[in-house]
Amino acid sequence: MNQLWVTLRPHLPFMLDGFLLTVFACTLAIIGAVLIGALMASLRTSGNRIVRGVAFAYSDVFRNTPFIVQLFFFFYGLPEIGIYIGAFETGVIALSIIGGAFVSDVIRSGILAVDQGVIEAAKVSGLSRWTIFTKIVLPIALRTSVRPMGSVLINMVLTSSILSTITINELTGTAKIVASTTFKPFEVYLVLLVLYASLTYALSLLINTVHRRLNRAMDTGGAA
């Protein structure tokens, strides 16, 4: 055990960098995913069939193909059409896009689950469609969606490890380097696994807290 510590210690600052890059990439991607997801979810309620169809296809396609294929599509494809952005930017964009597909589904089911009676009450009081959406439907949907949204975000964190395949030295990328320089792949990857598990565990604690906070006062189960 002590031997392991001695071997690994010099590499910890490097891995900490990787960890921070993971956190940074995930933070950006989560923001992107929520924005894209919210947009796509609202497009799916559009009156226009084509707009609805496109929004549905977006979530269907990105949910039913592997992330690594999507990532390579962007990583190798974008330069072909003259878009030269770094690997990190590409990775964050790809992660936002797949996250957006899942977030859009979560928001959509949250919206569909809002009690129709509550919406009717808002309608007959003369509130505009926009006000009903922003002040009633969305806030209620957000509260009921905390948990499913949480699993999407946790999945995004786990998925972010795949960014290491396009030369991004996030947590998994740095671990790969440390594993090969120390010749201790078993120990390094085991530690890495535990690190990810702790990270997602911490996230799930946070999600539970948010869920409780937001829903403390509210019964989203129904009218009575």
Partner: peptide, 24 residues
């Protein structure tokens, strides 16, 4: 309109329920 199942906005206090439409 007053509804059979109340249909109050579950995420708003009584006061907020009442003032939403007058304000907006």
């Amino acid at each position: 309109t007053v509804f059979q199942l109340f249909n109050l906005y579950p995420h708003m206090t009584a006061l907020e329920n009442i003032t939403l439409a007058p304000i907006n």
